[in-house]
Simulated assay, not measured.
Amino acid sequence: MEIKQINPEQTLSLRHKQLRSHLTLEECVYNGDYEESTVHLAAIEQEKIIGIASFYEEKCLAMPSKRAYRLRGMAVDSEYQGNSIGSQIIAYAEEKLRRRGVEVVWCNARLKALNFYKRNGFTVSGDKFEIPFIGSHFVMKKELKETAGNHYLTSIEKEFKAIKRKADLAIDQLSIEELYWRPHEHTNSISTIMKHLSGNMHSRWTNFLHSDGEKRDRQRDLEFEEFVMTREEMLDYWEKGWSCLFSTISSLTEHDLLKEVTIRNEPHTVIQALLRQSTHYSSHVGQILSIGKQLKAEGWKNLSIPKGESESFNQKKMGESH
């Protein structure tokens, strides 16, 4: 069984069967189902959806100052109940929501589901109330505590984004001709570095947990061959590589961090693989910045503290007492 994010339409059949059988399928759509911030999760067994839950950005009245998500539509197919599927979906969701900076998850829990939510760390808030045609409910909430594993994943994702941002700000300053410029014949142009990084990302992060990071169909040497692309083609290929990376990182949970993956048959924990690629990408982005500075000279827009301005920068950040 695997748990993964699905689209809103994929929740409707099981939502209707287990929770809203008195309604039509179309009436099982919830407000917020199609909001970009909403997260729909499913437990899938042999391509069949056997459990679902949806999470909506919505304040918890019991804790209004904290960023909160509401859990709705939690359902497990009656044929698969009693196998902790709901608990696994909640645990998976909590990791995803922590990564978004969510502090509280809450729900309107049916009376018969009270013990299920209590087992999963939720507590009752307020008095019992009725929802017409459905029955008695309690508001239940759970604070999401930060964990070391989640903090690591959040931090490494931010680090990769910071690396990419520096490269993007440098690339934006350069013309297509400058992207193809090489200091001399034994060095790479920025376009070649971009091509190499994207090729590496496609190879390393595709099917990351289940296949070697050096894919058999990768043609690494071709990444260093200079051939002409338009700026749009170059940026499209660049973005697709980063998208592959960020999509994979967002799918990881803290339970994956000590799993073993290989790169050219060399074993790494997931932590080690992430650190290895962070070092690799930052070194190449450093090359991009160096070439850009050579090309633009006085016209270069600094991406860090300008030369000779450290003291004034520190005073702005740390005050006159520094």
Rank of each mutant, 00 (worst) to 15 (best):
R20C: 08
K259N: 14
H40K: 00
G73L: 01
I85S: 00
S247Y: 07
I89W: 00
N200D: 08
W242T: 11
S304C: 10
D212F: 00
Y92F: 12
D33V: 03
R72M: 08
S198D: 03
R70P: 02
R218H: 07
E266Q: 14
L169D: 07
E27F: 08
I263P: 09
V76K: 01
L257I: 06
R70F: 05
H268E: 09
L12T: 03
S321R: 12
I90A: 03
R15I: 01
G319C: 06
M234Q: 14
P306A: 10
H22F: 12
Y80K: 01
S250M: 07
E177A: 07
L111W: 09
S13W: 10
D217Q: 08
V270L: 05
M201S: 15
H210Q: 15
P306N: 03
S247M: 09
G308V: 11
Y117H: 08
E159S: 08
Q219P: 03
H22M: 09
R100L: 15
L257W: 04
E57L: 13
A167Q: 05
V104Y: 03
E239S: 15
Q18G: 04
P267C: 08
E79V: 13
L25M: 11
C244G: 09
T187H: 07
H280Q: 11
H184W: 12
S21I: 11
K240Y: 13
K161V: 04
T262N: 06
L289W: 10
I131G: 01
E232F: 08
S250Y: 12
S78Y: 10
L257C: 04
L179S: 05
K317A: 12
Q88A: 13
R67P: 07
S304Q: 12
A93F: 03
Q173Y: 07
C244W: 04
S211V: 06
S198T: 10
V139A: 09
L111E: 14
A43T: 05
K164I: 03
L19N: 02
E2I: 10
P267F: 10
G126C: 01
Y180M: 12
S251C: 11
G241P: 11
L245G: 04
Q315V: 14
D172S: 14
I134D: 00
L14A: 00
M140T: 04
K112F: 13
H268Q: 11
R182N: 05
S247T: 12
T147A: 02
N207Q: 11
I52A: 00
L23P: 06
W242I: 07
I50A: 03
R98K: 12
